[in-house]
Nucleic acid binder design. Sequence first.
DNA 1: CCGCATCCCACAGGATACTG
DNA 2: CAGTATCCTGTGGGATGCGG
Lengths: 90, 90
Amino acid sequence: MGIIKGRWSFPIIRALMNGTMRFKELERNVSSINTRMLVKELKEMEAEGLVIRKAYATVPPTVEYSLTEKGQALKPVIVEIEKWAEKFLQ
Amino acid sequence: MGIIKGRWSFPIIRALMNGTMRFKELERNVSSINTRMLVKELKEMEAEGLVIRKAYATVPPTVEYSLTEKGQALKPVIVEIEKWAEKFLQ
DNA sequence: CCGCATCCCACAGGATACTG
DNA sequence: CAGTATCCTGTGGGATGCGG
């Protein structure tokens, strides 16, 4: 399992659990990520089939990201991690 | 959560789920890890309170590693990850 | 707004020889 | 057996400016 590798996939998935988000929204919501990393992670996650990218031909551009079923299915994992963290991290 | 960071903590924990193991056993059981990485990870995990190291003054030396309660508690996480992997990875 | 393009650095991780 | 010591490389990740 090297699919949630990288420092950011986890927080990004967490953010998208709450539903579709635009690029800028993600950039604001995901802790202290920077543009380059967000772009990079999103591309990788798209390639892995975890997120879907929808672009709208508006001015200025609108791009929405959401989780695929495969991405949504990671929720139980995240829940368990959070349970663990709550119990063992002060 | 940067505690299961690194490429190896996960497989190491997985191996130790089955019980106490000696250094060499781990080296054999954890896929293709090399000595340096195994030593390094074990030290970090010991510092994080995930594993316990027990050394015996024998010749040749015997060192056993096992999971702490905190380490054991990661089992549900691993279970969920495996469920997910089984479902979504061919 | 979205997201490339650059530049840069630290360090994770690999391979392997050596020691108590 | 259980590590330590070296050397080396790739790349993850940060900062920031530019363009459609």
